[in-house]
Design a protein around this nucleic acid. Structure first.
Lengths: 173, 173
DNA sequence: ATATGTGCAAATCTTTTGCAAATTC
DNA sequence: GAATTTGCAAAAGATTTGCACATAT
Protein backbone atom coordinates (compact mmCIF):
# COMPACT_ATOMS: atom_id res chain seq x y z
CA UNK A 1 0.00 0.00 0.00
CA UNK A 2 1.49 3.32 -1.08
CA UNK A 3 -1.03 5.61 0.60
CA UNK A 4 0.28 9.08 1.31
CA UNK A 5 -0.98 11.45 3.96
CA UNK A 6 -0.71 15.01 2.69
CA UNK A 7 -1.12 17.55 5.45
CA UNK A 8 -3.99 20.00 5.35
CA UNK A 9 -2.59 23.49 5.75
CA UNK A 10 -5.26 24.71 8.10
CA UNK A 11 -4.26 22.26 10.83
CA UNK A 12 -2.23 23.92 13.52
CA UNK A 13 1.23 22.44 14.00
CA UNK A 14 0.62 21.34 17.56
CA UNK A 15 -2.60 19.62 16.68
CA UNK A 16 -0.80 17.96 13.86
CA UNK A 17 2.01 16.63 16.03
CA UNK A 18 -0.57 15.42 18.51
CA UNK A 19 -2.39 13.48 15.84
CA UNK A 20 0.82 11.97 14.54
CA UNK A 21 1.88 10.83 18.00
CA UNK A 22 -1.44 9.22 18.73
CA UNK A 23 -1.57 7.67 15.27
CA UNK A 24 -5.01 9.20 14.80
CA UNK A 25 -6.74 8.51 11.52
CA UNK A 26 -5.84 11.28 9.09
CA UNK A 27 -9.34 11.74 7.80
CA UNK A 28 -8.23 14.82 5.91
CA UNK A 29 -6.50 12.77 3.29
CA UNK A 30 -8.98 12.28 0.45
CA UNK A 31 -8.08 8.65 -0.11
CA UNK A 32 -8.29 7.43 3.47
CA UNK A 33 -11.45 9.43 3.91
CA UNK A 34 -12.97 7.67 0.90
CA UNK A 35 -11.87 4.23 2.01
CA UNK A 36 -13.00 4.62 5.59
CA UNK A 37 -16.39 5.90 4.47
CA UNK A 38 -16.81 2.84 2.31
CA UNK A 39 -15.82 0.38 4.98
CA UNK A 40 -17.95 2.11 7.63
CA UNK A 41 -20.88 1.53 5.30
CA UNK A 42 -20.09 -2.17 5.06
CA UNK A 43 -18.76 -2.01 1.52
CA UNK A 44 -16.00 -4.47 0.72
CA UNK A 45 -12.64 -2.95 -0.01
CA UNK A 46 -11.36 -5.05 -2.84
CA UNK A 47 -7.97 -4.48 -4.41
CA UNK A 48 -9.67 -3.12 -7.54
CA UNK A 49 -11.82 -0.63 -5.64
CA UNK A 50 -8.80 0.63 -3.74
CA UNK A 51 -6.99 1.18 -7.01
CA UNK A 52 -9.87 3.14 -8.55
CA UNK A 53 -10.28 5.19 -5.37
CA UNK A 54 -6.53 5.91 -5.19
CA UNK A 55 -6.48 7.16 -8.75
CA UNK A 56 -9.50 9.41 -8.28
CA UNK A 57 -8.30 10.70 -4.92
CA UNK A 58 -5.03 11.89 -6.35
CA UNK A 59 -6.06 12.81 -9.90
CA UNK A 60 -5.22 16.36 -10.83
CA UNK A 61 -7.59 16.49 -13.78
CA UNK A 62 -10.87 14.97 -14.82
CA UNK A 63 -10.66 11.39 -15.97
CA UNK A 64 -12.97 9.45 -18.19
CA UNK A 65 -13.55 5.72 -17.85
CA UNK A 66 -11.03 4.86 -20.54
CA UNK A 67 -8.22 6.88 -18.97
CA UNK A 68 -9.09 5.49 -15.58
CA UNK A 69 -8.88 1.97 -16.94
CA UNK A 70 -5.46 2.70 -18.43
CA UNK A 71 -4.15 4.10 -15.15
CA UNK A 72 -5.65 1.23 -13.20
CA UNK A 73 -3.95 -1.27 -15.48
CA UNK A 74 -0.60 0.30 -14.74
CA UNK A 75 -1.08 -0.99 -11.22
CA UNK A 76 -2.88 -4.22 -12.04
CA UNK A 77 -2.81 -5.29 -15.63
CA UNK A 78 -5.67 -7.76 -15.16
CA UNK A 79 -8.24 -5.20 -14.06
CA UNK A 80 -11.28 -5.19 -16.30
CA UNK A 81 -13.16 -2.34 -17.91
CA UNK A 82 -16.41 -3.61 -16.36
CA UNK A 83 -14.87 -3.48 -12.90
CA UNK A 84 -13.87 0.12 -13.43
CA UNK A 85 -17.40 1.02 -14.46
CA UNK A 86 -18.81 -0.86 -11.49
CA UNK A 87 -16.47 0.91 -9.09
CA UNK A 88 -17.33 4.27 -10.57
CA UNK A 89 -21.00 3.70 -10.17
CA UNK A 90 -20.49 2.55 -6.60
CA UNK A 91 -18.45 5.62 -5.69
CA UNK A 92 -21.02 7.83 -7.36
CA UNK A 93 -23.90 6.20 -5.48
CA UNK A 94 -22.02 6.73 -2.26
CA UNK A 95 -21.59 10.41 -3.07
CA UNK A 96 -17.80 10.19 -3.03
CA UNK A 97 -17.28 11.26 -6.63
CA UNK A 98 -19.16 13.38 -9.15
CA UNK A 99 -19.85 12.64 -12.77
CA UNK A 100 -19.46 15.36 -15.38
CA UNK A 101 -19.80 15.49 -19.10
CA UNK A 102 -17.87 18.73 -19.58
CA UNK A 103 -20.43 19.67 -22.20
CA UNK A 104 -19.25 16.94 -24.54
CA UNK A 105 -16.66 19.20 -26.10
CA UNK A 106 -15.03 16.14 -27.61
CA UNK A 107 -17.09 12.97 -27.49
CA UNK A 108 -19.91 11.52 -25.49
CA UNK A 109 -18.05 10.06 -22.54
CA UNK A 110 -18.26 11.07 -18.89
CA UNK A 111 -15.65 12.39 -16.55
CA UNK A 112 -15.19 11.76 -12.88
CA UNK A 113 -13.69 13.72 -10.02
CA UNK A 114 -13.70 13.22 -6.28
CA UNK A 115 -16.38 15.22 -4.56
CA UNK A 116 -14.94 18.45 -3.27
CA UNK A 117 -16.18 20.38 -0.25
CA UNK A 118 -16.40 23.74 -2.02
CA UNK A 119 -18.72 24.49 -4.90
CA UNK A 120 -16.99 24.93 -8.20
CA UNK A 121 -17.80 25.53 -11.83
CA UNK A 122 -16.31 23.82 -14.87
CA UNK A 123 -15.64 26.10 -17.79
CA UNK A 124 -14.71 24.61 -21.15
CA UNK A 125 -13.41 26.56 -24.12
CA UNK A 126 -15.37 25.48 -27.17
CA UNK A 127 -12.53 26.46 -29.44
CA UNK A 128 -9.47 24.76 -27.90
CA UNK A 129 -11.14 22.40 -25.42
CA UNK A 130 -9.26 23.72 -22.41
CA UNK A 131 -11.08 23.09 -19.12
CA UNK A 132 -10.87 25.44 -16.17
CA UNK A 133 -12.25 25.19 -12.66
CA UNK A 134 -13.49 28.14 -10.66
CA UNK A 135 -14.46 28.03 -7.01
CA UNK A 136 -17.37 30.27 -6.18
CA UNK A 137 -19.75 30.79 -3.32
CA UNK A 138 -22.52 31.40 -5.83
CA UNK A 139 -23.04 27.65 -5.89
CA UNK A 140 -24.02 27.78 -2.23
CA UNK A 141 -26.34 30.69 -2.97
CA UNK A 142 -27.87 28.66 -5.75
CA UNK A 143 -28.36 25.74 -3.41
CA UNK A 144 -30.05 27.96 -0.86
CA UNK A 145 -32.31 29.46 -3.50
CA UNK A 146 -33.34 26.03 -4.75
CA UNK A 147 -34.22 24.96 -1.23
CA UNK A 148 -36.11 28.11 -0.48
CA UNK A 149 -38.04 28.46 -3.72
CA UNK A 150 -38.78 24.85 -4.62
CA UNK A 151 -38.54 22.80 -1.45
CA UNK A 152 -36.22 20.40 -3.26
CA UNK A 153 -33.24 19.37 -1.13
CA UNK A 154 -30.11 19.57 -3.28
CA UNK A 155 -27.53 16.86 -2.84
CA UNK A 156 -25.11 17.97 -5.53
CA UNK A 157 -25.03 20.73 -8.10
CA UNK A 158 -23.18 20.63 -11.35
CA UNK A 159 -22.35 23.78 -13.26
CA UNK A 160 -20.70 23.62 -16.64
CA UNK A 161 -20.12 26.54 -18.96
CA UNK A 162 -19.32 26.81 -22.64
CA UNK A 163 -16.95 29.70 -23.15
CA UNK A 164 -14.19 31.20 -25.24
CA UNK A 165 -10.86 31.36 -23.44
CA UNK A 166 -8.70 34.50 -23.56
CA UNK A 167 -6.19 32.97 -26.00
CA UNK A 168 -8.91 31.89 -28.41
CA UNK A 169 -10.63 35.26 -28.12
CA UNK A 170 -7.51 36.84 -29.57
CA UNK A 171 -7.16 34.26 -32.30
CA UNK A 172 -10.84 34.45 -33.24
CA UNK A 173 -10.91 38.18 -33.90
CA UNK B 1 -47.28 24.30 -43.32
CA UNK B 2 -49.03 24.36 -39.95
CA UNK B 3 -46.93 27.06 -38.29
CA UNK B 4 -48.69 28.82 -35.46
CA UNK B 5 -47.92 32.25 -34.11
CA UNK B 6 -48.64 32.34 -30.37
CA UNK B 7 -48.83 35.85 -28.99
CA UNK B 8 -46.36 37.03 -26.41
CA UNK B 9 -48.30 38.44 -23.49
CA UNK B 10 -46.07 41.44 -22.96
CA UNK B 11 -46.92 42.92 -26.37
CA UNK B 12 -49.39 45.75 -26.05
CA UNK B 13 -52.65 45.16 -27.86
CA UNK B 14 -52.23 48.11 -30.20
CA UNK B 15 -48.75 47.13 -31.17
CA UNK B 16 -50.03 43.68 -31.77
CA UNK B 17 -52.81 44.79 -34.05
CA UNK B 18 -50.37 46.99 -35.90
CA UNK B 19 -48.07 44.05 -36.53
CA UNK B 20 -50.91 41.88 -37.66
CA UNK B 21 -52.14 44.46 -40.12
CA UNK B 22 -48.74 45.01 -41.64
CA UNK B 23 -48.02 41.29 -41.66
CA UNK B 24 -44.73 42.02 -39.91
CA UNK B 25 -42.54 39.03 -39.06
CA UNK B 26 -43.51 37.87 -35.57
CA UNK B 27 -39.94 37.42 -34.41
CA UNK B 28 -41.19 36.85 -30.88
CA UNK B 29 -42.45 33.44 -31.82
CA UNK B 30 -39.74 30.94 -30.95
CA UNK B 31 -40.23 28.95 -34.13
CA UNK B 32 -40.12 31.78 -36.63
CA UNK B 33 -37.20 33.26 -34.77
CA UNK B 34 -35.31 29.98 -35.09
CA UNK B 35 -36.14 29.58 -38.75
CA UNK B 36 -35.28 33.12 -39.73
CA UNK B 37 -31.97 32.91 -37.87
CA UNK B 38 -31.11 29.79 -39.82
CA UNK B 39 -32.02 31.19 -43.16
CA UNK B 40 -30.22 34.50 -42.48
CA UNK B 41 -27.12 32.43 -41.90
CA UNK B 42 -27.50 30.73 -45.24
CA UNK B 43 -28.64 27.42 -43.82
CA UNK B 44 -31.09 25.47 -45.94
CA UNK B 45 -34.55 25.06 -44.52
CA UNK B 46 -35.44 21.54 -45.41
CA UNK B 47 -38.75 19.98 -44.52
CA UNK B 48 -37.00 17.79 -41.93
CA UNK B 49 -35.24 20.69 -40.23
CA UNK B 50 -38.48 22.62 -40.04
CA UNK B 51 -40.14 19.67 -38.37
CA UNK B 52 -37.39 19.28 -35.79
CA UNK B 53 -37.37 23.02 -35.11
CA UNK B 54 -41.17 23.10 -34.78
CA UNK B 55 -41.12 20.32 -32.24
CA UNK B 56 -38.38 21.90 -30.16
CA UNK B 57 -39.91 25.36 -30.37
CA UNK B 58 -43.18 24.19 -28.94
CA UNK B 59 -42.04 21.39 -26.64
CA UNK B 60 -43.17 21.80 -23.09
CA UNK B 61 -40.67 19.37 -21.65
CA UNK B 62 -37.19 18.14 -22.40
CA UNK B 63 -36.96 15.70 -25.25
CA UNK B 64 -34.34 13.12 -26.01
CA UNK B 65 -33.43 12.07 -29.53
CA UNK B 66 -35.68 9.03 -29.45
CA UNK B 67 -38.78 10.99 -28.40
CA UNK B 68 -37.98 13.66 -30.92
CA UNK B 69 -37.76 11.03 -33.64
CA UNK B 70 -41.11 9.63 -32.62
CA UNK B 71 -42.76 13.05 -32.70
CA UNK B 72 -41.10 13.89 -36.00
CA UNK B 73 -42.40 10.68 -37.54
CA UNK B 74 -45.93 11.66 -36.61
CA UNK B 75 -45.51 14.46 -39.12
CA UNK B 76 -43.38 12.62 -41.66
CA UNK B 77 -43.13 8.90 -41.27
CA UNK B 78 -40.07 8.68 -43.52
CA UNK B 79 -37.85 10.90 -41.40
CA UNK B 80 -34.72 9.12 -40.32
CA UNK B 81 -33.03 8.90 -36.94
CA UNK B 82 -29.76 10.13 -38.48
CA UNK B 83 -31.49 13.22 -39.82
CA UNK B 84 -32.82 14.01 -36.37
CA UNK B 85 -29.35 13.74 -34.89
CA UNK B 86 -27.93 15.87 -37.69
CA UNK B 87 -30.56 18.55 -37.18
CA UNK B 88 -29.97 18.56 -33.44
CA UNK B 89 -26.28 19.05 -33.85
CA UNK B 90 -26.89 21.83 -36.35
CA UNK B 91 -29.26 23.65 -34.02
CA UNK B 92 -26.84 23.21 -31.16
CA UNK B 93 -23.93 24.58 -33.20
CA UNK B 94 -26.04 27.58 -34.10
CA UNK B 95 -26.78 28.18 -30.44
CA UNK B 96 -30.53 27.78 -30.93
CA UNK B 97 -30.93 24.84 -28.57
CA UNK B 98 -29.13 23.50 -25.51
CA UNK B 99 -28.15 19.96 -24.74
CA UNK B 100 -28.64 18.57 -21.24
CA UNK B 101 -28.11 15.24 -19.65
CA UNK B 102 -30.30 15.88 -16.62
CA UNK B 103 -27.69 14.06 -14.54
CA UNK B 104 -28.49 10.74 -16.20
CA UNK B 105 -31.18 9.97 -13.70
CA UNK B 106 -32.45 7.27 -16.02
CA UNK B 107 -30.09 6.34 -18.84
CA UNK B 108 -27.25 7.84 -20.77
CA UNK B 109 -29.11 9.85 -23.38
CA UNK B 110 -29.21 13.59 -23.88
CA UNK B 111 -32.08 16.00 -23.77
CA UNK B 112 -32.70 19.09 -25.82
CA UNK B 113 -34.54 22.33 -25.25
CA UNK B 114 -34.70 25.56 -27.16
CA UNK B 115 -32.34 28.19 -25.81
CA UNK B 116 -34.18 30.48 -23.47
CA UNK B 117 -33.34 34.11 -22.79
CA UNK B 118 -33.38 33.80 -19.01
CA UNK B 119 -30.98 31.69 -17.02
CA UNK B 120 -32.52 28.62 -15.46
CA UNK B 121 -31.55 25.62 -13.43
CA UNK B 122 -32.66 22.02 -13.90
CA UNK B 123 -33.38 20.16 -10.72
CA UNK B 124 -33.93 16.41 -10.82
CA UNK B 125 -35.23 14.30 -7.96
CA UNK B 126 -32.99 11.28 -7.61
CA UNK B 127 -35.78 9.30 -6.03
CA UNK B 128 -38.74 9.78 -8.38
CA UNK B 129 -36.99 11.30 -11.39
CA UNK B 130 -39.16 14.38 -11.51
CA UNK B 131 -37.51 17.34 -13.27
CA UNK B 132 -38.14 20.92 -12.27
CA UNK B 133 -36.97 24.18 -13.78
CA UNK B 134 -36.15 27.27 -11.78
CA UNK B 135 -35.43 30.67 -13.24
CA UNK B 136 -32.82 32.58 -11.33
CA UNK B 137 -30.69 35.65 -11.81
CA UNK B 138 -27.84 33.85 -10.08
CA UNK B 139 -26.94 32.40 -13.47
CA UNK B 140 -26.23 35.90 -14.72
CA UNK B 141 -24.15 36.59 -11.60
CA UNK B 142 -22.25 33.40 -12.28
CA UNK B 143 -21.65 34.47 -15.84
CA UNK B 144 -20.34 37.83 -14.69
CA UNK B 145 -18.08 36.19 -12.14
CA UNK B 146 -16.63 33.83 -14.74
CA UNK B 147 -15.89 36.75 -17.05
CA UNK B 148 -14.36 38.81 -14.31
CA UNK B 149 -12.26 36.15 -12.61
CA UNK B 150 -11.12 34.01 -15.52
CA UNK B 151 -11.36 36.13 -18.66
CA UNK B 152 -13.32 33.32 -20.31
CA UNK B 153 -16.32 34.58 -22.27
CA UNK B 154 -19.31 32.38 -21.45
CA UNK B 155 -21.66 31.51 -24.27
CA UNK B 156 -23.97 29.22 -22.34
CA UNK B 157 -24.15 27.94 -18.81
CA UNK B 158 -25.76 24.72 -17.73
CA UNK B 159 -26.79 24.07 -14.17
CA UNK B 160 -28.17 20.73 -13.10
CA UNK B 161 -28.89 19.69 -9.55
CA UNK B 162 -29.49 16.34 -7.92
CA UNK B 163 -32.09 16.75 -5.22
CA UNK B 164 -34.84 15.15 -3.22
CA UNK B 165 -38.27 16.53 -4.00
CA UNK B 166 -40.73 17.43 -1.21
CA UNK B 167 -42.91 14.36 -1.81
CA UNK B 168 -39.95 12.00 -1.67
CA UNK B 169 -38.60 13.72 1.43
CA UNK B 170 -41.77 12.70 3.23
CA UNK B 171 -41.70 9.17 1.90
CA UNK B 172 -38.00 8.73 2.71
CA UNK B 173 -38.26 9.59 6.40
C1' DA C 1 -27.51 23.70 -62.08
C1' DT C 2 -25.13 22.78 -58.22
C1' DA C 3 -24.18 22.42 -53.75
C1' DT C 4 -26.22 20.42 -49.85
C1' DG C 5 -29.11 17.30 -47.26
C1' DT C 6 -31.52 12.77 -46.75
C1' DG C 7 -32.43 7.81 -45.98
C1' DC C 8 -30.47 3.55 -45.46
C1' DA C 9 -27.36 0.36 -43.49
C1' DA C 10 -23.47 -0.55 -41.23
C1' DA C 11 -20.00 1.01 -38.01
C1' DT C 12 -18.45 3.13 -33.76
C1' DC C 13 -18.21 4.44 -29.19
C1' DT C 14 -19.61 4.04 -24.39
C1' DT C 15 -21.62 1.45 -20.95
C1' DT C 16 -24.08 -2.67 -19.00
C1' DT C 17 -25.09 -7.55 -18.02
C1' DG C 18 -25.01 -12.86 -17.23
C1' DC C 19 -22.36 -16.20 -15.41
C1' DA C 20 -18.54 -19.24 -13.54
C1' DA C 21 -14.51 -18.64 -10.84
C1' DA C 22 -12.10 -15.88 -7.33
C1' DT C 23 -12.08 -13.02 -3.24
C1' DT C 24 -13.52 -10.55 1.06
C1' DC C 25 -15.17 -10.48 5.60
C1' DG D 1 -18.13 -20.60 4.87
C1' DA D 2 -21.35 -17.51 2.84
C1' DA D 3 -22.09 -13.65 0.36
C1' DT D 4 -20.16 -10.56 -2.71
C1' DT D 5 -17.11 -9.19 -6.47
C1' DT D 6 -14.35 -10.05 -10.48
C1' DG D 7 -13.03 -11.12 -15.42
C1' DC D 8 -14.65 -12.50 -19.53
C1' DA D 9 -17.54 -12.31 -23.39
C1' DA D 10 -21.42 -10.86 -25.33
C1' DA D 11 -25.24 -7.49 -25.50
C1' DA D 12 -27.29 -3.14 -25.32
C1' DG D 13 -27.81 1.76 -25.89
C1' DA D 14 -26.71 6.07 -28.12
C1' DT D 15 -24.76 8.36 -31.78
C1' DT D 16 -22.09 8.76 -36.18
C1' DT D 17 -20.64 7.82 -40.94
C1' DG D 18 -20.29 6.48 -46.10
C1' DC D 19 -22.69 6.60 -50.01
C1' DA D 20 -26.23 6.86 -53.80
C1' DC D 21 -30.28 9.44 -54.48
C1' DA D 22 -33.29 13.54 -53.58
C1' DT D 23 -33.95 18.48 -52.73
C1' DA D 24 -33.35 23.63 -51.76
C1' DT D 25 -31.81 27.83 -53.37
Amino acid sequence: LTTKFPIRQSLRESQLRFNRKKGAKMIDDPLSSMLSTLSERGIRLTRQRRIVAEILASASSHLNAEELLRLARERDSAIDRATVYRSLSLLKEQGLIDELDLLHLEGGEHFYERRKPKGHVHIGCYSCGRILELETSLIQSLEAEIRRKTGFLPDSIRVEAHALCPACQKRCE
